[in-house]
Design a protein around this nucleic acid. Structure first.
Lengths: 261, 261
DNA sequence: AACCAACGGTTCAAATAATGAACCACCAAC
DNA sequence: GTTGGTGGTTCATTATTTGAACCGTTGGTT
C-alpha cells in the first residue's frame, strides 16, 4: 500500500464516538510509526483535510471535507436529489427511511428521514457504517453485487451482533439467493434486537447496484398491513431515486417488484 | 512537497465547471507525470475519495467525501448550526446572505441563503472560492488575521476582476486598516460589477478569525436605509453564530459593532 | 484502408521520498 | 525527583515514488 493510502486510512480513525484523536493514539490505532503519522497528518492539515484543535493539539476532520462534499453534490446530486423522496417515504410509511451507499468494502448511511407519526422510531446517524450480513440494506446490496465482489465481502468475519444474526456464510449465501429472487431483503433483530427492516437495492447507470434504500421499524409495530405498505412504497421510492440519479431499475427487478405488491 | 500533498492537490482540479477530468488532462493540469497521476488516483479511488465514470473513464470526486463531511458536521456542527441564522439574516435584510470559511490560503463559501423578497438577487454557489482582495468577506477576514498571515496572502497576485477592483497592495493595506477600525468591510463592484456587499469577520474559540459573514445586494437596490439594516442584522447574526460555534466575539469587536448601529 | 493523434494504462531502472528508533521538551501525578 | 504520558523532531537506512518509453484502443482524417 502506498503512502497516500496510509494517509487516507488515518481519516477512517475519526468516528462519531471518537471525533478527535491525539498523535500517539493515532499511531497506536493505525499501527504506523508516530513520526510517520505526524508527517501524514501535517500534510493533510496543510490541505485542510484535518485540523488540530485545543491545548492537547488533537486532530479532527478539517473544513476542506465540507467544500469537497459540496462540490461532489453539485456535480452528482446524490444526497440532495434523494432527500425529498426519502422524506416522502418516511411520511408514507410512518417509519424511518434510510439510504446507504456502497463505498468499496463499506456500506455507509448517507441520509435518513424520520416520520413524525409515532413517538418511538428507529433512530439513525449519518455516516454510520452498516454490517453487510446483518442488515437488510447490506443484504440487498450483496445479493445484486457481481459474484466475485460478493464473495470477497462474505470472506470476512461475520460477527454475531444479536442472537438472531446469521453468521454462517453458506446459510447467508442461501439467504442472498432468496433476496435475489424476491428483489428485496428483510431482516428482523439481526442488527439491533428490537428493530426490523426491509430494503431494496438501488441502481445507477449501467444496471450496477450502488446502494440500498430501506425502512426500519420497531419490531413491536410490524404488522402484515404495514409490511405491504412498506414493500409498495419502498419499491416506488427506489424507482424514483434511480431515475433522479440518471439511471434506471433493470427490467428484471421491476418485474420482481410488481409481483411483490 | 510529499506524495500525500500531491495527491490531495489533484482533488483541487475538480471544480464546478470541470466536475470530471480524464487522466491525461489531470496530468497536464497538475504538471505531474501521467503514471504518477494514475497511481495517486487509483489509490484515492480505492478509498472512495474519487471515482471513475463512463466509457471515457474520467475521474470525479467520490462518495467518501459525503461520509467525511457528515462526520465532520456531527463532530463540529459548523454549517448546520449556522444555516438557520443565515436564513434569518436573508429574511431580515431581504438580500442574499453567505458564510465563508478560511481554509489555509483560500476563502471558501460553505453556505448561503436567499431572500424571497425580490426577483433580482445576488446568486451564489456552494464551494465557491472567493478572492481575498476583491470581496468584503475576504477583506473582513484579512483585516483581522495575524499580520504575518495577512502579508503572506497579500504577497500574491491581486488580479483586476472589474474596473473597481483594488489591485495595489499598499492601498489595500490602508483599506484593511479602515476595516479593522470599523469592524466590518464593504465593497461595491469590486468582484462582480453589479453587486455590492457588506461583511463582518467570524470568530471561533480563542478570538481567532475563521471566516466571514456577508450580505450581498444588487448595486441598484442599495440605499442608506438598507445599509443600516444590513449593518445591524449582520453584526447580530455574527454574534449569534460565534456563540453557536462555542466561541465569542472579542470585546473590542463588539464595541465597534455597537458604535456602528 | 491506412494513417495519425489522443486516449487510459503499464513497465522498470534511477532518483527520491518515506521510514522509524532514538531523541527532545513539556506536563501531570505521585 | 521520579515516572510515564504527551506532541514533536532528527537522520541514516530503506523502500517507494518517479517518468520516459511503451502498449493497446478509439475516433477522426486523408
Amino acid at each position: 500500500m502506498g503512502t497516500v493510502g496510509k494517509a487516507l486510512d488515518l481519516l477512517d480513525l475519526f468516528t462519531r464516538q471518537r471525533a478527535q484523536v491525539g498523535l500517539s493514539e493515532i499511531a497506536r490505532l493505525s499501527g504506523l510509526n508516530k513520526a510517520t503519522c505526524h508527517r501524514l497528518l501535517t500534510e493533510m492539515e496543510s490541505r485542510g483535510l484535518v485540523e488540530q484543535v485545543g491545548a492537547a493539539r488533537e486532530y479532527r476532520l478539517g473544513p476542506a471535507v465540507l467544500r469537497l462534499a459540496a462540490l461532489r453534490e453539485t456535480a452528482v446530486p446524490t444526497r440532495d436529489a434523494a432527500m425529498p423522496v426519502l422524506q416522502a417515504l418516511a411520511r408514507a410509511t410512518g417509519e424511518t427511511a434510510h439510504l446507504s451507499l456502497r463505498e468499496g468494502d463499506r456500506l455507509v448511511t448517507i441520509a435518513f428521514a424520520y416520520s413524525p407519526a409515532h413517538a418511538t422510531k428507529v433512530m439513525m446517524e449519518d455516516a454510520d457504517i452498516l454490517p453487510w450480513h446483518a442488515t437488510s440494506s447490506g443484504q440487498a446490496v450483496l445479493a445484486f453485487l457481481p459474484e466475485d465482489q460478493r464473495e470477497a465481502l462474505l470472506g470476512r468475519p461475520l460477527p454475531r451482533l444479536t442472537a438472531a444474526t446469521e453468521t454462517d456464510p453458506d446459510r447467508l449465501r442461501a439467504r442472498l439467493a432468496e433476496v435475489r429472487a424476491l428483489g428485496c431483503a428483510e431482516t428482523a433483530g439481526t442488527f439491533e434486537s428490537d428493530a426490523q427492516s426491509l430494503a431494496v437495492p438501488l441502481f445507477a447507470r449501467g444496471d450496477a447496484v450502488v446502494g440500498a434504500l430501506g425502512v426500519a421499524v420497531p419490531v413491536s409495530r410490524m404488522s402484515p398491513d404495514l409490511h405491504a405498505v412498506i414493500r409498495r412504497e419502498v419499491t416506488a421510492a427506489a424507482t424514483e431515486i434511480a431515475t433522479l440519479w440518471g439511471g434506471q431499475v433493470p427490467p428484471g427487478i421491476t418485474a420482481l417488484w410488481q409481483r411483490l405488491t
